[in-house]
Write a protein that binds this DNA or RNA. Structure first.
Length: 428
RNA sequence: GUGGCUAUAGCUCAGCAGGUUAGAGUGCCAGGUUGUGGCCCUGGAGGUCGAGGGUUCAAGUCCCUCUAGCCACCCCA
């Protein structure tokens, strides 16, 4: 087809997929609220520097995945690739900084990464995440993980596993890094090009190398967990104890390394067995105690996670039923169209979801349309009804109908529809 | 960014070894009931065969480039 097509890696969210996404998001917001988190939203674009400094210059995200552009004032802006750095920035730039710590925040919205698209991977995708700012006690790490887990439970998702690791902090990480380099130094020649590159730029990343996965070499490599300082070791134990208290199963995975630079201590991911190998991460998160300073703000510890809504939606059950209008108002030509329009408006004002089918099209076609739209009741308004100040209310399922006076119509309809017109699900 | 597979109607796909006006199912519209729906019947609209170039008397079909999707890497959500 000719015409302009959508940019690579983007999607039009049509009613069905959007309903799924909204349902997943609504559940997340609900669980977050139950944990005392308040929702915020940050801009979709930010100063490029926020991500370069926050996410880390050597990361894939910054080196090749950012949508960066100059605006008309010559500033370098970037469509946000992730949400944590913006939340920390927003905290410091707002009255939130005066709130009693810790501050608990949830956020959601589109993120952008110039990556090669595939199933479960888009250039524009949607995340839901939470952050706890100003608290270094390890129990909040478990709280954040627990929140994520309860969210999945609420969605009825199964087949997931929680991978947990500790990356050490600025006290013990340098020593570990050195040990890792020392271990690989004599083996450099045997390493694939890619892994040599990793060791140069970001040594920890070599741990989740797929090239080396089967070689056994990683099994001999020093482990982060053996090099933790006492503070990190104690914290990691407390995280695990708290998870046990929550009854959440986890697997300690000493090869789990997060891709962004700002993580310290707790790192975790939730994987799903049915998603494709590299795209099996439903969420990722961890502690980022040094991030605030990287951004040029005072020290502020933090933990959080972010989840990909598309991926979670992919493995969660579809919504019970698509929500359409509950009744249709049909004109039977040659009825007075004004009366039909007014009736639909009157019923909408009474809180009902009303589909209007006016015009000269035949009643047969209109009923067919009403049928396929899934409405439960069709209100037929024609010349005879107008003359008698009534409306014909037809129940679609039973093909039965009755004449109802226009006066007090709302009451009768509510009774027929049963309790409560269904409300809309939350939108993003 | 690398490699492989794919691209025909809104959707799912046929299209035989290159040969005249490109097909099916489904969906859409209308009629079969000038006021009554899901089935059925009849008719209709809808395609620059992803885009551009090339080979050939002739290209949906062969070749090249580009674009997009999927899969495997890389990596993440």
């Amino acid at each position: 087809m000719a015409g302009i097509s959508r940019p690579r890696g983007t999607e039009d969210l049509l009613p069905e997929p959007l309903a799924r996404l909204n349902r997943v998001l609504a559940a997340g917001l609900q669980v977050a609220r139950a944990h005392g988190y308040r929702q915020i939203e940050t801009p979709i674009f930010e100063s490029t520097d926020l991500f370069v400094r926050g996410v880390g210059e050597s990361t894939d995200v910054v080196t090749r995945e950012m949508y960066t552009f100059p605006d008309r004032g010559g500033r370098s802006l970037t469509l946000r690739p992730e949400g944590t750095a913006p939340v920390v920035r927003a905290f410091w730039e707002s009255p939130l900084r005066q709130d009693p710590l810790p501050v608990r925040i949830s956020y959601s919205g589109p993120m952008f990464r110039y990556d090669r698209p595939g199933k479960g991977r888009y250039r524009e995708f949607h995340q839901f995440g939470v952050e706890v700012l100003g608290e270094s006690e390890p129990e909040v790490d478990a709280e954040v993980i627990g929140l994520a887990w309860r969210w999945l439970e609420r969605l009825g998702v199964s087949g997931t596993s929680l991978q947990l690791n500790s990356l050490g902090d600025r006290e013990c990480r340098p020593a570990y890094r050195a040990a890792l380099l020392e271990f690989f130094e004599p083996r450099m020649a045997a390493l694939p090009e890619l892994d040599r590159e990793r060791l140069r730029r970001n040594p920890l990343r070599v741990l989740d190398s797929k090239e080396l996965a089967g070689s056994g070499i990683l099994d001999q490599a020093p482990r982060t967990l053996d090099h933790l300082c006492s503070g990190c070791r104690e914290a990691f134990e407390r995280v695990q104890e708290a998870l046990e208290a929550l009854g959440i199963p986890f697997a300690v995975n000493h090869r789990l390394v997060r891709g962004l630079d700002y993580y310290a201590r707790t790192a975790f991911e939730v994987w799903h067995q049915e998603l494709a190998g590299a795209q099996n991460a439903l969420f990722g998160g961890g502690r980022y105690d040094g991030l605030s300073e990287l951004l040029g703000y005072p020290p502020l510890p933090g933990v959080g996670f972010a989840a990909g809504l598309e991926r979670v939606a992919m493995i969660s059950a579809p919504p019970p039923q698509p929500m359409g209008p509950e009744l249709a108002v049909l004109s039977a030509p040659p009825a007075d169209q004004k009366a039909v329009v007014a009736l639909a408006d009157r019923l909408r004002a009474a809180g009902m979801a009303v589909l209007l089918d006016a015009g000269v099209r035949g009643l047969r076609a209109k009923l067919s349309f009403a049928e396929r739209s899934g409405v439960r009741l069709a209100l037929i308004l024609g010349e005879s009804e107008l003359r008698e100040r009534t409306v014909t209310v037809r129940r679609m399922s039973g093909r039965t109908q009755a004449s109802v006076p226009l006066d007090g119509l709302e009451e009768r309809l509510r009774a027929l529809l049963g309790t409560g017109g269904s409300a809309e699900e939350g939108t993003s």
